[in-house]
Design a protein around this nucleic acid. Structure first.
Length: 567
RNA sequence: UGGGGCGUCGCCAAGCGGUAAGGCACGGGUCUUUGGAUCCCGCACUCGGAGGUUCGAAUCCUCCCGCCCCAGCCA
């Protein structure tokens, strides 16, 4: 175990935890938690938090709890509960038997509220929501105290008990902490602890009609579980004083500390649950698991391996500054793991018919192809070759520019694992569109090498027409057409920047026969094109693939540069 | 303009008084039956700016500039 460094890059939170462990704080123990509210699907930003919390625990011999922060029944749904647990497991983390809920603590929280009331540190306020807002003051002016602020302990106790008993309608009263209406930190201007909500809760049913606010529930939940490091995002920084106030004024069993880090922003997409919900509800995408979504469900369906997402989260680091991460880094992480694991196959997305004139009609050759050059243990397969084939339309140009190495009239190229072929004629339709290529092959080059040492500059993928499997292929582009949509401004919303071409469907691609019947989720590299996976919509009689990510394409760069030069 | 944060390469990000890690991207080369992968090489005399302290400053001090968050009975 020496020398082989667990390559976790340093970050300020890790430094704090390491220091605490070294100093024997919390008995040298580390207990973190991942506390989602079940009000939407998890996205790649949550993955950053999950990796941080579970990763820290693992690194320092501690544990990470899973806790649903279910304090607001109006927004929470079972569908989200299920998807969240499923996604965390898929990402590769295990909370064993440590599944908790803020709602597990409702009774305890209620008793603590009673303690605060008895200590004169909380009161029932009967101002309306609007009035409370007015009384709160502004960023630059102090607030005013509510006329109900000095109710007696017994009156507060009576009112609060009746709030719980259901004697009041929603909004009639709230319980507030009595702190400081003039605090420069607005969170301390008598924050609401409980509100009345006559709504069934997915776990507690009709038992409660008052629900604790996040601020009142979170720290105590942490304390109850013995959390040592409570890690959240930067927008909670101003809440830390309140987090501490509750813990300091209540008889809690442990003393957790809150630390904040910057949330992830990824270029060309959005991360807020509100916006993701809009994309789903307004039909811009097919659902939370649409492969274009930055949700874990979407990325999984897209074919992104969990390992790639974990690696990505490690690469981006953890800091306090607001940042915008290149989408390219995620794609790099995806290719990196797929390159090692994905079996190679040949598929033609945009078929161009090729007839090998000197290849006997009806003859079929079985050629040996390597399944994965990165992994010798994955072996070989055979691929049928015959007189009529398909190649990629992009692999032929009648009048090729200098740097184009692929097929063109009179030029010889290699068909991967098969033969050298030379284009001898081009067949066009009445519109001048190329419909077919007539070629000849060199039987001596079987397998792809010429015994006379002849070289070709390009190797093309191909599929035998008679053996091809038809498939629908879904190609994806970025959800948004600009990297950063946060500055919406001047009346625009992120909807105005939704990429109308984020999905392209190819109805009749031609796949090599080995792909027939591949199960949903199976991932392949289609040689020279990219990584593709079988979509859950796929059926044996009508296969559907998603393009996970393209291969790095230096030719595309050259072609684009030429285009710019020409324009 | 009250309070809380943050400013190091195109994008992330180490660094914490001893003379700018790393990754992605990018450029060049090697190799190649994927214009993939691999492997080499290059890529911040400078850390938002200006002063100051010091033998020595991205790191300490002062002032200035810029960006983000907070006025839910959301989390």
């Amino acid at each position: 175990m020496n020398g082989v460094e667990t390559r976790v890059p340093p970050n300020f939170i890790r430094t704090i935890v390491a220091e605490d462990v070294k100093n024997g704080k919390n008995g040298g123990k580390v207990l973190t938690r991942f506390p989602p509210e079940p009000n939407g699907y998890l996205h790649i930003g949550h993955a950053k938090s999950i990796c941080l919390n579970f990763g820290l625990a693992a690194e320092f011999g501690g544990l990470c709890n899973f806790r649903f922060d279910d304090t607001n029944p109006g927004k929470e749904e079972i569908e989200y509960v299920d998807s969240i647990m499923n996604d965390v497991r898929w990402l590769g983390f295990d909370w064993q038997d440590r599944l908790y809920h803020a709602s597990d603590y409702f009774e305890r929280l209620y008793q603590w509220a009673l303690d605060l009331i008895k200590g004169g540190k909380a009161y029932v306020d009967s101002l309306s929501a609007d009035q409370i807002r007015e009384y709160r003051g502004t960023l630059t002016e102090p607030g005013k105290e509510s006329p109900f602020r000095n109710r007696s302990v017994s009156e507060n106790l009576d009112l609060f008990e009746r709030m719980r008993a259901g004697e009041f309608v929603d909004g009639e009263h709230v319980l507030r902490a009595k702190i400081d209406m003039a605090s420069p930190n607005l969170n301390l201007r008598d924050p609401v602890m409980y509100r009345i909500r006559h709504l069934p809760h997915w776990r507690t049913g009709d038992k409660w009609c008052i629900y604790p606010m996040y601020d009142y529930a979170h720290g105590q939940s942490d304390a109850l579980e013995g959390i040592t490091h409570s890690i959240c995002t930067m927008e909670y920084e101003d809440h830390r004083a309140l987090y501490d106030w509750y813990l300091d004024n209540l008889d809690v069993p442990s003393r957790p500390r809150q630390y904040e880090f910057a949330r992830l922003n990824l270029a060309y997409t959005v991360m807020s649950k509100r916006k993701l919900l809009q994309l789903v509800q307004e039909g811009y995408v097919a659902g939370w698991d649409d492969p274009r979504m930055p949700t874990l469900a979407g990325m999984r369906r897209r074919g992104y391996p969990a390992e790639a997402i974990r690696n990505f989260c490690e690469r981006i680091g953890v800091g306090k500054r607001e940042s915008m991460v290149d989408y390219g880094l995620l794609e790099f992480s995806v290719r990196e793991v797929l390159n090692l694991k994905a079996l190679r196959m040949m598929s033609v997305l945009r078929p161009l018919k090729v007839v090998i004139e000197n290849y006997p009609e009806g003859q079929v050759d079985q050629l040996e192809a390597i399944n994965n050059p990165e992994d010798a243990s994955s072996g070989v397969r055979s691929v049928p070759f015959s007189r009529v084939l398909y190649i990629e339309r992009d692999d032929f140009m009648e009048n090729p520019p200098k740097q184009f190495f692929r097929l063109s009239p009179g030029r010889e190229v290699r068909l991967r694992y098969a033969y050298f072929i030379k284009c001898v004629d081009v067949v066009k339709d009445e519109n001048g569109e190329v419909t077919e290529l007539r070629c000849v092959y060199d039987p001596a080059t079987r397998g792809g090498d010429s015994p006379d040492g002849r070289k070709v500059k390009a190797t093309l993928h191909w599929v035998s027409a008679a053996h091809a499997v038809q498939a629908e292929i879904r190609l994806y582009d970025t959800l948004l057409n600009r990297p950063d949509v946060s500055d919406e401004g001047s009346g625009a919303t992120f909807r105005d920047f939704i990429n109308p071409r984020s999905l392209e469907v190819i109805a009749d691609a031609k796949l090599e026969p080995a792909l027939a019947g591949a199960p949903a989720g199976a991932t392949y590299q289609f040689e020279r094109l990219g990584y593709f996976c079988v979509d859950p919509d796929s059926k044996p009689e009508k296969m559907v693939f998603n393009r996970t990510v393209t291969l790095r394409d230096t030719w595309a760069k050259v072609a684009k540069a030429n285009e710019i030069k020409r324009a």
